[in-house]
Write a protein that binds this DNA or RNA. Structure first.
Length: 532
DNA sequence: CTAGGGTTAG
């Protein structure tokens, strides 16, 4: 380091005296050394003194340095000044552009590269594929595949794995298998991505077959299988595999716990977490805590939630925004609104999600006025509300009977650039219905820009039950039966809204309907005793 | 000189 400084000073001295006798290799090496030593500013200074003397690799390293720090503007500047760009320069830029999540920009950039006469290589293709899959431009995947075949790049495992991901996003099984066959030397990653593809497309047996056929496996292979089973609602198969795993890590446990949360087996999820902690071999991560808090929230396990809270504090993770938000949600759902606002108050940094948790929690506790107050503070502090904010706000108004305030907020949404969705209409139907303004609720449903769903009909039905309005009630009931089976979660939402207010008649009505339509809902129960 | 696969918040 000392040597470096000396030679840098030496160089600077020479340049200021306009002596240009420094050998190119020295200048390049000096810049490279600075870059390795995190001396980006100094490297750039030397770089600017005489760009014409620099090697291509020095230019590329300069771009890399900026890209790695997320400084795309600076990277672009260097890239634009470069006299002759090579594939590496372009690839590095693609790498940085990936983070901007702007597929259009990536495509334009790629076309520019092609116009400049350069061919993509096995690193370029994945950059393009990843940028377009999952966007409106995924139709380009097949064309890029064609290009890759022409250039012989589809034989590469690296390029191949990105094509596998591409065909998965196209939900194209045949394409997935063809790409896999084309890969010359299939490595673990190729097999893992193939399995991911099978699982995402719902071909669980093919995934299992690949798993048994593959020549070598790593821990990610096992995780891929676990997640695949879980997302295909085969939690027991996941557990079986989990038990067979030789090497487990925090990730394995978190995936399994989260699997149980997803399949609503909250008790098992929490017991597994307990087991993980008691073994003493694993440190729960942010992901683990976040998943466990969700389980606590969904099962109203306040005691367990408190224990998790203290673990988080002990590990110095209390200032994490995601975890704080999960804590607020947990306390609110487990019934301790005071603890929830305590966590919220002491958050050093908030985000829209944390405000939503807080406002939603207040709404859940029937503290509509406080929810509105909190909303006002949110706006005053410069946070932008989103759809969820308004769902919480409107349900707060519905719970507290603030009809006019609710209507006002409903009208106000557009001003924040948020279009009313089904959930918002459901809240409004609920709000008006409870207040006995059934005709107004009916008119709102008729004027909606979309077809009413179970939640909306259910809200109307409940209100009709409340006000003994049989005629309209039948319309609502008929609306539901016409929809036949729907998402069970929809019932959950409504049952919760009703149950909170002790509105048992409509809860019963809904339960009956749920039975008729085979929707499942886990019975609410407390099992703190079983855990502690 | 650039490098692919597995999980979090309302």
């Amino acid at each position: 380091m000392r040597m470096l400084e000396t030679s840098a000073t030496f160089l600077r001295g020479h340049f200021s005296r306009r002596i240009f006798t420094i050998p190119t290799t020295t200048l390049n090496r000096l810049i490279n050394d600075h870059l390795r030593d995190n001396g980006l500013v100094e490297a750039r200074r030397l770089f600017n003194q005489n760009p014409t003397l620099l090697d291509k690799s020095t230019w590329n390293m300069m771009i890399t340095a900026y890209v790695q720090r997320g400084l795309m503007l600076e990277a672009h500047e260097v890239f634009d000044q470069m006299p002759v760009r090579d594939v590496v320069s372009w690839n590095t830029m693609f790498l940085g552009l990936k983070k901007t999540r702007d597929p259009e920009r990536v495509i334009r950039f790629f076309l520019e590269m092609r116009r400049s006469g350069l061919n993509p290589d096995e690193l370029t293709i994945p950059a393009i594929i990843d940028a377009v899959s999952g966007s409106g431009f995924k139709v380009l995947i097949m064309q890029i595949h064609t290009l890759a075949i022409r250039l012989g790049l589809s034989l590469s495992a690296y390029t191949g794995s990105s094509l596998l991901r591409g065909y998965t996003s196209l939900r194209n099984l045949r394409g997935l298998e063809r790409v896999f066959e084309d890969i010359l030397l299939k490595d673990v990653v190729s097999w893992n991505v193939l399995i991911t593809g099978y699982m995402k497309l719902g071909f669980v047996e093919d995934g299992e077959r690949a798993f048994s056929e593959m020549p070598e496996r790593n821990i990610i292979t096992w995780h891929t299988m676990l997640i695949g089973f879980i997302n295909n609602t085969k939690i027991d198969k996941a557990r079986e595999l989990f038990n067979q795993m030789g090497q487990k890590n925090v990730f394995s446990w978190t995936v399994m716990i989260n699997g149980y949360v997803q399949s609503r087996e909250l008790k098992v999820a929490l017991m597994l977490f307990q087991e993980m902690v008691e073994s003493g071999n694993y440190r729960p991560s942010h992901y683990t805590f976040s998943t466990v808090l969700k389980a606590c929230a969904a099962s109203s396990s306040l005691l367990m939630g408190k224990q998790v809270h203290s673990m988080i504090t002990k590990r110095g993770m209390a200032c994490d925004v995601v975890l704080s938000t999960s804590l607020i949600d947990m306390y609110a759902k487990a019934g301790d609104i005071t603890a929830a606002s305590g966590v919220f108050k002491f958050m050093p940094m908030k985000n829209p999600a944390s405000w939503n948790s807080m406002i939603g929690g207040l709404a859940r506790h029937g503290l509509g006025v406080n929810a509105l107050e909190e909303f006002k503070k949110m706006i005053e502090s410069g946070y932008k509300p989103d759809q969820v904010t308004f769902i919480n706000l409107l349900s707060a108004c519905a719970h507290t009977g603030l009809v006019e305030e609710g209507e006002k907020q409903f009208m106000l949404m557009g001003r924040f650039g948020i279009a009313a969705e089904k959930e918002h209409y459901a809240c409004m139907v609920d709000l008006l219905g409870r207040a006995g303004q059934l005709d107004k609720a009916e008119r709102l449903i008729k004027g909606m820009p979309f077809e009413p769903d179970v939640v909306i009909w259910g809200a109307l039905l409940g209100a009709c039950g409340l006000h003994s309005c049989l005629e309209l009630g039948e319309v609502a009931a008929e609306g539901i039966s016409r929809l036949r089976r729907e998402h069970p979660a929809a019932y959950d939402v409504l049952c919760r809204v009703r149950g909170d207010k002790g509105d048992w008649t409509s809860v019963m009505e809904l339960r009956k309907l749920m039975k008729k339509t085979k929707a499942k809902k886990q019975d609410a129960s407390s099992w703190i005793e079983t855990l502690t």
